[in-house]
Design a protein around this nucleic acid. Structure first.
Lengths: 216, 216
DNA sequence: CTGAATTTTTACCACTTGGTAAATTGACGA
DNA sequence: TCGTCAATTTACCAAGTGGTAAAAATTCAG
């Protein structure tokens, strides 16, 4: 089961520390991979350093040679994640066709649920627990971006390019419906009658849902 | 399966229940309340018996006098939750007006996010971690109900009472959008510009969203 | 009131967990 | 080849965890 390469693969570029040996590169990457697996599956407190170390093929003290502690690993994963997560929304282009821009965003978001379910669950876990390690990041990164894009959406609506709805709730519903396929995967697997990929059907369903909503 | 625990705070629908002293009633209820708080906020592994005991105003050994262990408390909470959770869907009436039945379901679901956010988060936590203690329950309770109601929805669609969409994905999107307001509450609080209740706006937004989708 | 049953507390314990100190091995350029 | 620094292992701990035994306190029927 080869896991897809994630954007988390590259190690941190902490100011100044650029010189990383090949061993450092390799092991840090392996640790981040393993930690993503374990944190996504069990949450922060549910994950143990032993699990992560084992999954990374290292001893626990060896793991702690590379990172300052459990929390440091988690924080680094979350920071990495935010870039990837915000990217599709950032790319919503004020000069593009409004409806198609939103639909592209939706399909992109859904695609991320399929490609990066662990990242989605990592995020969901963190938010569910009250975002103890990410709230500042949300305020500083997510909020400004959302404010900007809701303004853009409202403008499109004012110009009659999109049906008028609350832009904030529109975003919520896009996030909710797309991430649901990653975060509640177990439930969906229980309920699905056939063996086909649920996200396949989701793609056409969500297209209909939001197109009907937003077509002026 | 050795013991059959008594449901406590929840109305005892099962027959053959033993009489519980007033002290038992009171303390079991308090424990369940406290446990719901703690499990919803921290997940199963993140919660500790000490936290629960403290929140319930009891000592840890005293708490364990009433329940067989941490897992037993968690399982009981989940079982009680399932009834509440499935109830609105069960009430979707084959003899009612199709569109209004679905819309009632949506509004009811949203109302539950507002009234029982802890229950929603308890459920979300369990599913996110792979539903280790609830998968059987999902198969035995949720799946049959969903199969029944998707059949009903499909029938309504075939009769032209509802626009034709995938009924399963319709349910997913209803769950996702409504529960989102409880499960991602922290995020929504960060993003909301004013002090008004986000669920207020959600109510009209979701009404528009699903009405546009389903109106034939 | 009184004695038995119920409830609560006190004092533990075995195990897990995140983390550390120091000794040991490995890599690699001069 | 050697010396040095990077990488890894070994042997630990202190705190926290779920859980238990048994004594102490409380409740309550008769």
């Amino acid at each position: 089961m080869t896991q897809r390469e994630t954007p988390l693969a590259a190690p941190a570029e902490q100011g100044g520390e650029k010189k990383l040996s090949r061993i450092q590169q390799r092991n840090r990457t392996r640790i981040m991979e393993a930690a993503l697996d374990v944190f996504a599956a069990h949450g922060f407190r549910g994950a143990t350093l032993d699990q992560i170390a084992k999954a990374a093929g290292l001893s626990k003290p060896n793991l702690l040679y590379y990172f300052d502690g459990k929390e440091a690993i988690h924080v680094m994963l979350l920071n990495r994640l935010m870039e990837t997560w915000l990217n599709p929304l950032e790319e919503m282009d004020p000069n593009g066709d409004p409806l198609e821009e939103v639909m592209d965003y939706i399909h992109g978001k859904l695609q991320m649920s399929r490609e990066f379910p662990r990242e989605s669950r990592l995020f969901a876990n963190e938010i569910l627990q009250g975002a103890p390690r990410m709230k500042p990041h949300l305020e500083s990164s997510l909020k400004p971006l959302v404010d900007e894009k809701t303004a853009l959406l409202r403008q499109w609506m004012d110009n009659g390019k999109l049906a008028a709805v609350d832009p904030r709730h529109l975003l919520y519903s896009i996030w909710a419906t797309t991430q649901h396929y990653a975060d509640f995967e177990v439930q969906i697997d229980v309920l699905k009658p056939d063996d086909e990929d649920p996200i396949e059907g989701a793609d056409t369903y969500l297209d209909t849902l939001f197109r009907k909503l937003l077509t002026p």
